[in-house]
């Protein structure tokens, strides 16, 4: 998804195992914690492999600027941002760039399809996605975390969206590419699903795929999407099974 094809291409698939030891149908470890920010209406923190992303949802609140507001529905706004320290490469100055603007737009459009915005005319719903650490597949992790944050905020949605990428590595389709597979693989295809209906809400592709490979990729992604939904539901359930008054959670890491 980012970075060039610098360096030599390593072997990505040896005896059906990938660089990090996964099989072609395995996701990386995904961990989601819902309701982590004190001041947001809804929030979630996701660790997906080495990706670490915070999602915050504010709203519905009065739509500012006023010329954006609609009398018929709530306006969904999204800001995807990568922290300058989030990757191995230099990300340059912070702030919106071409890539983050594109991702903000496609993520916003994915959620416009599921949020029942007619319930709250004249308002806005803001989704903030901050990538703290990136390792390939941040847009999918961001969509997955944003859906949990929206559900946590109590915003009515038709479904809990999630997203996963599929890639072609050494001629074979595999789910959830990591950074190496992303940079050196032949193709990369992030897809966001509405898991209940299987509707596709976001679809992008890098590289080339045959129709058969595309179909295989969709089959893999749909399977993974079902697993992700279970993780999302468990994250929200945990908020109510273990209620706590103070939301902010410090994750301690052993040195």
């Amino acid at each position: 998804m980012m970075g060039g094809n610098a360096g030599n291409k390593p072997a990505l698939l040896v005896d059906g195992k990938r660089v990090d030891g996964r099989g072609v149908e395995d996701l990386r470890n995904v961990k989601i914690v819902a309701r982590v920010l004190n001041d947001a209406d809804g929030s979630a923190y996701i660790e997906w492999g080495k990706n670490k992303i915070l999602a915050g949802v504010y709203g519905p609140s009065e739509c500012i600027p006023r010329h954006d507001q609609s009398l018929y529905r709530s306006v969904v706004k999204c800001r995807y941002n990568m922290a300058p320290f989030s990757g191995m490469e230099e990300h340059g100055r912070s702030g919106p760039n071409r890539r983050s603007k594109e991702l903000s737009k496609v993520i916003k459009e994915a959620f416009e399809n599921v949020i029942i915005s007619e319930s709250y005319p004249k308002t806005q719903i803001e989704i903030y996605l901050e990538v703290l650490q990136s390792d390939g597949g941040t847009r999918c992790a961001a969509v997955t975390a944003a859906a949990v944050a929206l559900a946590d905020a109590g915003i009515p949605m038709k479904d809990m969206v999630n997203a996963v990428a599929v890639c072609k590595i050494d001629g074979k389709m595999a789910v959830d590419p990591g950074k190496e597979e992303d940079n050196f693989g032949e193709s990369d295809m992030p897809i966001a699903f509405s898991p209940r209906t299987g509707d596709v809400l976001l679809f992008q592709m890098d590289g080339l795929l045959t129709p058969d490979e595309l179909a295989e990729g969709f089959r893999l992604a749909r399977n993974a999407s079902g697993k992700l939904r279970e993780i999302q539901v468990a994250a929200i359930r945990k908020v109510y099974d273990e209620p706590r008054e103070e939301r902010f959670l410090v994750i301690e890491k052993k040195q």
């Binding site: 029942i116 559900a151 946590d152 109590g154 915003i155 009515p156 949605m157 038709k158 479904d159 209940r196 209906t197 929200i236």
Partner: peptide, 10 residues
Amino acid sequence: DGGRTFSTVV
């Protein structure tokens, strides 16, 4: 949707 009822919220 499709003759069945689904939730929109937690």
